[in-house]
Design a protein around this nucleic acid. Structure first.
Length: 566
RNA sequence: CGGGCUGUGGCGCAGCUUGGCAGCGCGCCUGCUUUGGGAGCAGGAGGUCGUCGGUUCGAAUCCGACCAGCCCGACCA
């Protein structure tokens, strides 16, 4: 393509409010434009990158036996009601009605539709199946942010596997693990595979593919010894043991005027160090107001609690707390509370001589023996692991916590959707068997943004060749001179004939403008053709990453470029 | 949903405190000069100052409501 005739609106300045590098650079480079919060148009350059990424995804999905479909974006509410998600995912699901008043929803994912399609199968002989599509999803996120990293409308490659049994599912799951690894590697992304919570997707196991980046929204823990890696929503570490000095007698109230936080209480002395406090939180677990207690220096990981309890969890509001306990947050405790269930973190097991709130404002209790004084109903691991903690699996290595971008997620779903939607086949013995499903997703735009987060410098994007909108840009200096234009056209024609994706910068701009634009846009190779080099029949060939910087004879340039891009 | 902030030509911003001609930089158009790292000169186009209402002789500016967006948090199939 010719730059002069292509819509590439580059900007000299960062867009207002853009913080993430991928956000700034994709907008400045003319790849994307925002329509509303969390909705972006792909411009020609962005579309080319999206095509590259989709192409790689298709190749790898096809290689593991995937068949490409295209399912609709607007679904009948009916199928979502059948799986129960009509109510479960309230909030981010956009619901509306057609002219007849029938319920419709915008696709947030496609388990229901594909399970519905799978209901047409009738024999185990048709299995296994692996179906996928690249299709728009819409999720009315509470807070879209960071350009393409978290949006409301996006294209996702989602695939769905159907098997007769768990062994089949395991094979498809492992095939996806391999395919995803290859996809991200080809895109230049160094991914970590981490155990993750399945959230309200349901199902047994899930693995996220994540890329280390400070811009990410997720945090994961990775063991340096055994390779254990898990999202903090699930990660398990070993808690350090604390030796308590026993203190005889019942808990003793003491006045703590104005003390509302763990830190403020700790200032009263060593006896109230955070590690010697009991943190009492009040949560709505399902429909039940529940006391949640942890060690003072530990944080609650809500998802771990939700998964362990098998219920949705939300923090109680202040009104609910005061009504139930008669005190405000800051003076709460679980000692002697009989009318509410108490869930405790195992780090509190066996602890004694601790400090906690007395359920009376400005009063705390000391000398609390956890198992003696608190009526614990359930012990559930629900604390957030901390950086440096000992690995919960190998019990030797240290867990390193890092911030990551989630670029892919694979789920073992089991039979939830197939049972709800009647997707079953007859097995060898002639009995109906609900299909065992898996689902697997990659966000195309997020992958694009992740590549930019990882591959950029202070001048702009540095695309890996596999994702680049063009492999080469020919920068024509003084295109108003016939000899320059002729040489560029010859090169351009030669590269096109050789099947190289080439952009000819034929704009009547000054050299500096062209160089900076080429670097901002991030095209991997640049051939510079100007009067100076033409005197010796040469062009200058540079790689955006800096590893190549050489002069090539014009008649060898096509060959040399082919050699470099492979 | 809570907290903080912002809305002024295509982009980035000033002006608002103390009401009185709507400005600057970049970009854009025309001409001339220039051309190996964001050119110079001259001329020019382009704005319901987010929306609605109020105060006032007069509102970008003051007041109210609403809308939109950004950042932090909550939330996140």
């Amino acid at each position: 393509m010719r730059w002069s005739q292509t819509f590439i609106p580059t900007l000299r300045e960062d867009p207002a409010g853009a913080v993430a590098a991928s956000h700034r650079l994709l907008v400045r480079g003319g790849f994307i434009r925002r329509l509303m919060a969390g909705s972006y148009s792909l411009l020609p350059l962005g579309m080319r990158v999206a095509h590259k990424i989709s192409g790689i995804i298709r190749q790898e999905m096809d290689a593991i036996g995937g068949q490409e479909f295209l399912a609709p974006v607007v679904h009948p509410g009916e199928i979502w009601k059948r799986t129960g998600r009509w109510d479960d995912v309230e909030g981010i699901m956009v619901k509306f009605e057609d002219r007849k008043g029938a319920d419709l929803v915008l696709a947030l994912t496609h388990e229901e539709v594909f399970a519905h399609l799978a209901a047409e199968m009738s024999s185990y002989k048709e299995l296994p199946q692996l179906w996928y599509h690249l299709q728009t999803k819409f999720r009315d996120e509470a807070r879209p942010r960071s350009g393409l990293l978290r949006v409301r409308e996006f294209t996702m490659k989602d695939s769905y596997s159907f098997d007769l049994d768990e062994e089949g599912l395991d094979r498809q799951f492992e095939a996806h693990r391999g395919a995803y690894h290859r996809i991200f590697t080809r895109l230049g992304l160094d991914t970590i595979q981490v155990e993750a919570s399945s959230g309200n997707m349901g199902g047994s196991d899930s693995v996220e593919f994540v890329v280390r980046s400070p811009t990410g929204e997720d945090r994961v823990a990775v063991c340096g010894e055994c390779g254990y890696a898990a999202n903090l929503e699930r990660a398990v570490g070993l808690v350090d043991q604390v030796a308590d000095e026993p203190r005889p007698g019942p808990p003793e109230p003491f006045p703590t005027p104005g003390v509302r936080t763990i830190a403020a209480l700790a200032e009263l002395g060593g006896f109230a160090a955070p590690i010697r406090q009991i943190k009492t939180l009040v949560c709505m677990v399902g429909e039940q107001l529940t006391l949640v207690v942890l060690r003072g220096d530990h944080d609650l990981e809500e998802q771990k609690l939700a998964d362990a309890a098998g219920e949705a969890v939300r923090p109680a509001d202040e009104g609910e707390i005061v009504e139930a306990l008669g005190a405000h947050p800051g003076s709460l405790g679980a000692v002697g509370v009989e009318d509410l269930p108490v869930i405790a973190d195992p780090a509190l097991r066996g602890r004694s001589n601790m400090v906690t709130g007395a359920n009376q404002d400005d009063v705390h209790l000391r000398g609390v023996d956890v198992e003696r004084d608190i009526p614990v109903d359930r012990w559930l691991d629900m604390r957030t692991v901390a950086d440096g903690e000992v690995c919960g699996r190998c019990r030797r290595g240290a867990l390193a916590v890092s911030t990551v971008i989630e670029v892919g997620h694979i789920f073992k779903l089991g039979r939830k959707y197939s049972e709800a939607l009647g997707a079953a086949v007859l097995d060898e013995s002639g009995r109906p068997a609900p299909l065992v499903m898996g689902s697997y997703g990659i966000g195309v735009g997020r992958a694009m943004a992740a590549v930019v987060e990882v591959c950029h410098d202070d001048r702009g994007i540095v695309w890996p060749i596999a994702a680049a909108p063009f492999a080469v840009v020919i920068t024509a200096l003084r295109p108003d001179r016939a000899e320059v234009l002729e040489a560029c056209e010859a090169l351009y024609g030669g590269l096109l004939a050789a099947g190289v994706e080439v952009l000819l910068d034929d704009r009547p701009e000054r050299p500096g403008v062209k160089f900076t634009d080429a670097e901002l846009v991030g095209i991997p190779y640049r051939l510079t053709v100007g009067p100076r080099g033409l005197e010796s029949g040469e062009a200058e060939l540079r790689s955006r990453g800096g590893s190549v910087n050489e002069r090539v004879a014009l008649d060898l340039a096509v060959h040399r470029v082919k050699e470099l891009i492979g």
